[in-house]
């Protein structure tokens, strides 16, 4: 079954959105931000924080790792940091491979 194309917009998430969607408490979001796993796009007080999709993606991962592997936030932040570094290195590696190809040709 195929559905017709629907025009939608890209949205950001508030702390209450995140808490509702991921079944977490506000203090969990605070922990994640405190450990540098994600950074709010805007907002001073915690209930004003707004996150983009990239931050939401890493927050979700962090919460899953914290709950499923029963590891503390410092360990979670290390894992997330390594995951982000791995993603960056893979992108960089791909870029250098293409760049090298241009010089070798």
């Amino acid at each position: 079954m195929t559905q017709r194309a629907l025009t939608v917009t890209v949205t950001e998430l508030s702390v209450s959105d995140l808490c509702q969607l991921e079944h977490i408490e506000e203090h969990v979001v605070a922990e994640v931000v405190e450990h540098g796993i994600a950074e709010p796009l805007a907002g001073e007080a915690i209930d004003e924080w707004v996150f983009d999709g990239t931050s939401a993606h890493w927050i979700k991962k962090a919460v899953r790792l914290h709950q499923d592997l029963e590891i503390d936030w410092i360990a979670v932040s290390l894992v997330i940091d390594l995951m982000q570094q791995k993603e960056l290195l893979e992108q960089e590696n791909e870029r250098f491979r293409i760049q090298l190809g241009r010089f070798m040709d």
């Binding site: 079954m1 195929t2 559905q3 017709r4 194309a5 629907l6 025009t7 939608v8 917009t9 890209v10 949205t11 950001e12 998430l13 983009d52 999709g53 990239t54 939401a56 993606h57 993603e87 960056l88 992108q91």
Partner: peptide, 27 residues
Amino acid sequence: VKPVKKHLRVTIPQGVTEGERIRVKGQ
């Protein structure tokens, strides 16, 4: 449970970067 093909028209904002994730609510 059946597989369903979805088609969406999404506005990708100016200045997106490699690896970035953008959220489309409820889809």
